[in-house]
């Protein structure tokens, strides 16, 4: 069949390029999502700081919150393709035509864009934690920051993991827009193979299959990771009435600790 022929021709000629494109796609989306997560955590934490009493601190915090709001609204309200052009060419404009190296530029763009989405996810995650968790910590004298670090953020991380995974999967697909500034990711090489070989359908079919394999695999891996973080439903009870050195393994899925 000729489609098979086309595909194998494109692959044998441009396969190496496409593979290096996959590497860039994966690198940019992983690092971009991680940095975006850090940005989102910092912003989310700042946005949920309780109202300070000191008037100067209060003004500073209000200004920072305002900046974060603008950042979130602007980056969620414009296409990443346009953001890529503005950041890349804006940098060149302000630096006498000197451009950023492409892959780092791609990482910066994806990070900033993802950070805007994850800021909102983190804020929602923090707000959804029961007040009682804060009060339990406050009642023994823990500061807001200590409470965040040891109690709230660990729970938020667990709760937002599915949403962050989702951002990662979105990023794998959306890094394709970085081809507008010439980042040599998967789509860039698929497009160049299409252009050079004139086998347009076959070239994009290859890209499509690879994107799907990437997102499918990543989704499965992250689901598995979520399960691991969910934690063991079982725990070990130390000691028993008769033998204090005995360890009893309790499976809370089958029956609560009451049934020991």
């Amino acid at each position: 069949m000729s489609l098979f022929n086309d595909i194998s021709k494109v692959w044998s000629r441009y396969g190496d390029q496409i593979l290096s494109g996959i590497a860039n796609t994966v690198i940019i989306s992983i690092i971009g999502t991680l940095i975006g997560l850090v940005i989102g955590l910092i912003n989310g934490i700042i946005r949920t700081v309780p109202k300070p009493k000191n008037p100067v601190v209060k003004v500073i915090l209000t200004v920072i919150n305002w900046i974060i709001n603008v950042y979130v609204e602007v980056f969620r309200g414009t296409p990443m393709m346009v953001q890529a052009m503005i950041i890349y060419w804006g940098y060149a404009y302000m630096n006498a035509g000197a451009t950023l190296p492409l892959v780092p530029a791609g990482i910066v763009i994806v990070s900033i864009n993802t950070g805007a989405y994850i800021t909102e996810i983190v804020r929602g995650g923090i707000i959804s934690i029961d007040r009682g968790q804060f009060e339990g910590a406050m009642s023994i004298g823990m500061s807001h920051f200590q409470t965040m670090l040891h109690v709230i953020i660990p729970q938020v991380m667990r709760n937002i993991l599915p949403s962050v995974s989702n951002e990662f999967v979105v990023n794998i697909k959306d890094t394709s827009v970085l081809n507008v500034i010439g980042v040599t990711e998967l789509y860039f090489y698929a497009a160049s193979a299409a252009k050079n070989s004139y086998k347009i359908f076959a070239s994009y079919l290859i890209a499509c299959a690879i994107y799907f394999c990437l997102t499918f695999t990543v989704t499965r891996i992250l689901r598995f990771a979520e399960k691991l973080i969910e934690g063991k439903a079982n725990y070990t009870v130390f000691g028993s009435q008769s033998d204090s050195s005995a360890e009893i393994h309790v499976n809370t899925e089958k029956g609560g600790p009451e049934n020991v």
Partner: peptide
């Protein structure tokens, strides 16, 4: 006996 149990358990 329950030192390593989480609250939900």
């Amino acid at each position: 006996p329950y030192i390593n149990a989480k609250p939900r358990q």
